[in-house]
């Protein structure tokens, strides 16, 4: 099966002017916010490549910020994102820099912060037509796409120890969901590991939250409502 829905091509419905630099930027902001799973007090955006050179003309800055505030790609308030962020007490900063030639020209590193919880860094690319890829979550290299409603993605950050993958996959199987794709990596033996599971059908929120009761599970995130 191919990796695109036709609604990744015919869409998104969006506020102009650019699918990659505006709509894709909104989606990257949404993705970072969903992964952070809290209301951030500060958002820092490091823009790379074409994002760095032409972000102003495409309103990429407003779009990224709007995404962090959970606006949809078609929300006309994207134009007022700066003012709305100020009202909501969300501080923001835009920087330009070079993340390295390995990254797509439309790439951003988003850092979200809130007092009392660890900050989160997400690197993502806008690969054309409003489609995005997440390339890095904190120190972990990852590779998954925010396709139009295809997958229900679960992200587990857990201790690297025997049985963790079995625990995750068994619980998912018990709920009758099928795994379409699975990625796993760790920083060091016995250290932190990240597992990304794409499902064909969703599982209940209560079942997702139940994973977090395990002491070796640092956090679980569910990405089911990414805008398309």
């Amino acid at each position: 099966m191919g990796s695109y829905s036709i609604f990744d091509i015919a869409g998104p419905i969006m506020i102009g002017p650019s699918s990659s630099h505006t709509a894709g930027a909104v989606k990257l902001g949404q993705m970072a916010r969903a992964l952070f799973d809290a209301t951030p007090e500060k958002a820092t955006f490091l823009l790379h490549g074409s994002f760095a050179t032409v972000y102003k003309g495409h309103a990429t800055d407003k779009a990224l910020l709007a995404g962090v505030m959970k606006f949809q790609t078609k929300d006309p308030r994207i134009k007022e994102a700066f003012a709305i962020a100020k009202e909501q007490g969300l501080a923001y900063e835009f920087q330009t820099g070079d993340l390295g030639i390995a990254y797509h020209p439309n790439t951003v590193k988003i850092t979200l912060e809130k007092e009392g919880i660890p900050p989160m860094e997400v690197v993502g690319s806008s690969i054309g037509g409003g489609n995005i890829e997440v390339k890095k979550i904190d120190e972990f290299d990852v590779d998954f796409r925010g396709a139009a409603g295809r997958y229900f993605t679960l992200i587990f950050c857990h201790k690297d120890k025997p049985g963790m993958l079995a625990l995750i996959t068994k619980a998912i199987a018990d709920k009758g969901a099928n795994i379409a794709n699975l990625q796993n990596s760790r920083l060091s033996k016995g250290g932190k590991a990240l597992t990304i599971v794409c499902l064909d059908s969703p599982i209940a929120l209560a079942d997702i939250l139940a994973f977090e009761k395990n002491d070796d599970m640092y956090f679980v995130r569910s990405l089911t409502s990414i805008d398309s």
Partner: peptide
């Protein structure tokens, strides 16, 4: 022109070529 003035469009396949 609607896209250039930040109107609502369907990106098809992209906004610039919509």
């Amino acid at each position: 022109e609607n896209n250039a003035s930040m109107g609502c469009i369907t990106a098809f396949p992209t906004a610039g070529s919509s």
